[in-house]
Design a protein around this nucleic acid. Structure first.
Lengths: 156, 156
DNA sequence: TTGCTTGCAAATGATTTGCACTGCT
DNA sequence: AGCAGTGCAAATCATTTGCAAGCAA
């Protein structure tokens, strides 16, 4: 059993607990289950998917806990065309990344751009935003396409 | 009265009508009103906003028409955190652009990157996607921040 | 105890759909 | 006539919320 499969690293839990503590919220077993699921899956997941991992957790509690975790800055909610929203660990608990979204099956995976590209992109986006009177805080890039399982005619 | 305020350009209407025709759908007055509103506002709008422009159009009809127009490739639906989805003209009826989103008031505006940056970005994104086994079709960049009206401490 | 958490059931609200009617073609 | 389009009212469904009970400090 890998460290990840065993549960998220102690460091991750410490950070999440800290952020919850700052808001007088407890780091309960349910919330740990959720964070563990994110750490194990390592990709944005929907609430139904999350529930299959966090056995025994009520749907409403999952929604409530995700809201608390999002509020505390430990989780981020993503909205794409899918029926359900996707949730993932906050970027500062992982690393700055973007998303690859399969237009066929809805799968979402993380990707990172090279630091060089990311840096020049950052500057460019800041420039454009400022020119429009916006004070930029962050950005997101989504690449849509077909994942390996959904490309037409895979088998020989 | 400008050409835009007078109604979208004849060319735009011709293209939309053509796409609807290909799917055996009519380009009715209601649909024209919707397209006109997009052309005049020139930014992604929510359904409630659209209804204030398309006087007399029933909410359900607006939703249905937008679905038809999206299906025909004339309109694109955007999902962000807001209560309502945003709609805009399809990119190939306007031009490739990205979005500036105000985290405070939800306003969304279009921006374009320089063609040089856009081109190198395109290549880079294609490369990353392919390396992950994805066959990319398109991409979207969202810059979040505060619009001029929402930056803290504006008045002197 | 006090108050954060939780599960269950009921409520909410954007979006969708059933149906009967109007209006092109 | 025949069928796409429309308005109205009712239905859907992800997400949220009220409430009573459980649990940790």
């Amino acid at each position: 059993m890998t460290a990840a499969a065993n549960g998220a690293g102690a460091e991750l839990h410490r950070l999440v607990g800290e952020r919850l503590g700052e808001r007088d919220q407890r780091y309960t077993a349910s919330r740990r289950q959720i964070i563990d699921a994110f750490a194990v899956l390592a990709r944005p997941v929907t609430l139904p998917e999350l529930l299959t991992r966090a056995k025994g957790l009520a749907q409403s509690s999952a929604y409530r806990n995700l809201a608390v975790l999002e509020e505390a800055g430990a989780v981020r909610r993503l909205l794409h065309g899918a029926d359900h929203a996707h949730y993932e660990l906050a970027e500062d608990l992982t690393e700055h990344h973007h998303h690859l979204i399969c237009v066929e099956c809805g799968l979402i995976r993380d990707i990172t751009l090279g630091s060089t590209l990311e840096r020049s992109l950052d500057n460019a986006l800041d420039g454009v935003a400022s020119a429009e009177g916006f004070t930029p805080t962050h950005h997101a890039i989504d690449i849509y396409g077909r994942c390996a399982d959904c490309v037409p005619g895979p088998p020989a």
